[in-house]
Design a protein around this nucleic acid. Sequence first.
DNA 1: CTCCAGGCGCCTT
DNA 2: AAGGCGCATGGA
Length: 316
Amino acid sequence: MSPFINKFSTQHYDLAATLSSGQAFRWRAQGDAWIGVIAGRWVRLRCEDDGVLAETAEPITDWNWLTHYLQLQLDLPSVLASFPDDAPMRSAVAVCRGLRLLRQDPWECLASFILSSTKQIVQIQQIIALLCERYGELVAIPTGEPPAHAFPSAARLAAITEKELRDCKMGFRAPYLLATARMVAEGRIDLERLRGLGVAEAREALIGLPGVGRKIADCVLLFAYGFQAAFPVDVWVMKALRELYFPRRRPTPKRLQKFTETYFGSHAGYAQQYLFHYMRKHVPSATPIPAQLKRKNAHPRRSSGNRPTEPFSYAN
DNA sequence: CTCCAGGCGCCTT
DNA sequence: AAGGCGCATGGA
């Protein structure tokens, strides 16, 4: 056991939900603990009754990198209180209590989500593990632990070939990641500068990158920069929105976007993560893009079971 | 075997 | 502007 341990008092922090809910892809479970690398530092986290225990490989004087990443200072109850007071959100909050949004490194987050398209979370984790193992710097670890790597820098990835990326099993995403890595490495986009922009401008800058569309941009805006207005709509959230809020009609994409921008309050992105996690945890058999969508005059089919509420349209 | 996965970019209408 | 399709890879 490493002697470099600190305990952070906090309430309502569900590490497992937070670290395995598809916002970050590098965390590995070890018993009831979680091992990962943040800002080039190996760290092992464990939930305790009244806080989070953190263990590092080297002495730490300033823990800000960790508290910021985990958003330990956040007043979660007040965020939850900002959600719309409707049955789906109440259910999601009840089921996901303690789920947090992380505040990740922009480059790692951007690269990770470029690799996420049309992949399941397990596969994304595999690709990123390979990428880090091959091109990330070794980081200090406690004795007895397996080697750990930092996430490779944009400059490092910009210097390798598309074939080497493809060999990490990322397929057609390889040219996107390579091109974006080069743009970042060459300073054609400054990821730090985005922090000072409004959400719309920051989104526009991200969408200008190869392999980055609206969904991936919003993931980065939310998970790396903390823009609470970012609301990534993927197949799961789409399914949640349709079934929970538009059970009887098919909203146009524009209408749906307006809804996500206005309905969910000042922490809409947070609400989105609760919906996402709730759908994944509690409707596991559901297919995100049901075939009945393609059928004409089909009633939205109720998947049997665990829906807590009767379908009802909350959209005005 | 087939289907499809936390999409994007490009090509049709 | 809206919709269809190809793109790699691996698991069910």
